[in-house]
Design a protein around this nucleic acid. Structure first.
Lengths: 215, 215
DNA sequence: GTTTAAGTAGGTAGTTTCCCGTAGGGATAT
DNA sequence: ATATCCCTACGGGAAACTACCTACTTAAAC
């Protein structure tokens, strides 16, 4: 091979799809970094000084307890923006789930940045608070249903939904073990609510039933 | 009585304590509303158009499932600010826990508002995501410990902590039933970690033990 | 094709909920 | 001041749900 290969290549891009939900408009000229599956984008405690927009791939944001228990607070799919913090320090870990490209935007202090960031922060706040309801008050099947409905909506509401993350990631997002996640998938399949096309993609057969279970 | 009495009186105030964590500086001249215990400040679905700063008292922000299950996402104590939303609609309910006074700030669109609101939104986002870890991955005693540590910090780190909310509110905040909350308080008392001064105030005897349990 | 990781399935155990009853503190009435 | 009511909190036992441990199966990687 003659082309240079690296796990993290920077270049310039204007290629953010304008129709994606969190996309900046117009997208500023920005450097893009590539991360292979499992690569760390930033770590808890690191200095924060940039924020990121997913070009393709998927990212998990999480926190750990001392004994290794992990809680994923959010997944970020293509077009979504993450990395902004309340102070100069990252309070969470960010990792690429699969091969992922992120646009890196240096933070410029000023009113203009606030105006762009505030709606993203408020949206994230609402999402986090809705997730609190799921973790605090819903049982396993309700959690998985809510997760699938959310993933479907974020992928345009199609019947077929891609799940870029593992069962363990899903479990750590929903506050469940991998076994429980797996069992619930099987239960939903047996009920005819979903079909398991392969490990990382499902088809929603009964959208209304799933919707009702998740709320 | 000659003085007018009402459950909701408006007046002007400059009285926000400047040392409180979220206080605006300088606090703008603002109308203040009073709410008795249990009064609704706003409801899910209502048009959002103002935000609020607690002068005294305490506020719970929550969401309901169709069958009545409730998840309190945050408590707001004196000096803290709440009520901002990602769009023009309130996504949550806000109620006064006790007799409460809140300063009402009309939203002015513009860069200036963004600059004031962004740090509050980011702080709230971080808090919500930390709460996700508690709800998703911690057991009952860890949840209560984390809650008490948080409440103590927000009240200046004193040994004695006031709990303005009922056991049911605490349960709905921590994703537990009232019985479990009550049992955990008893367990912490029996271990000598806390003392129950009365129903709504505790003394932290072993701060380090509580801290360790909550993380 | 072989190896290795990820996912699924079964059984048991532990934690928390659910349902019940009891106790205590504050407000109102007497 | 005392009594009564009501709401909140506390405690015990059974039940439910999910975690934990193990084994088996399937899919992916080399």
């Amino acid at each position: 091979m003659h082309a240079p290969t690296s796990s993290r290549i920077s270049l310039l891009s204007h290629s953010v799809q304008p129709s994606l939900p969190d996309a900046f408009d117009p997208a500023p000229l920005q450097p893009v970094s590539f991360f292979p599956a499992g690569a760390e984008i930033y770590a808890q405690g690191e200095k924060a000084g940039a924020f990121y927009q997913v070009e393709f791939g998927a990212v998990r944001i999480y926190r750990l307890l001392a004994d290794g228990r992990r809680q994923i607070s959010t997944f970020h799919l293509a077009g979504e923006t993450f990395g902004f913090e309340a102070d100069a320090t990252h309070h969470f870990f960010a990792e690429a789930i699969n091969a992922t490209a992120v646009g890196v935007l240096r933070l410029t202090t000023g009113a203009d940045m606030s105006r762009q960031l505030l709606p993203l922060a408020l949206k994230g706040l609402t999402r986090a608070q809705e997730h609190l309801l799921v973790l605090g008050r819903q049982n396993a099947i309700e959690r998985v249903a809510a997760f699938l409905v959310d993933m479907a909506e974020r992928q345009g509401g199609l019947r077929q939904v891609e799940l870029p993350m593992s069962r363990m990631d899903i479990g750590d997002y929903l506050g469940l073990t991998i076994e429980t996640v797996s069992r619930v998938f099987t239960r939903l399949k047996d009920k005819g609510v979903i079909r398991l096309l392969n490990l990382r993609s499902i088809e929603i057969v009964k959208q209304d039933v799933l919707q009702t279970m998740g709320e």
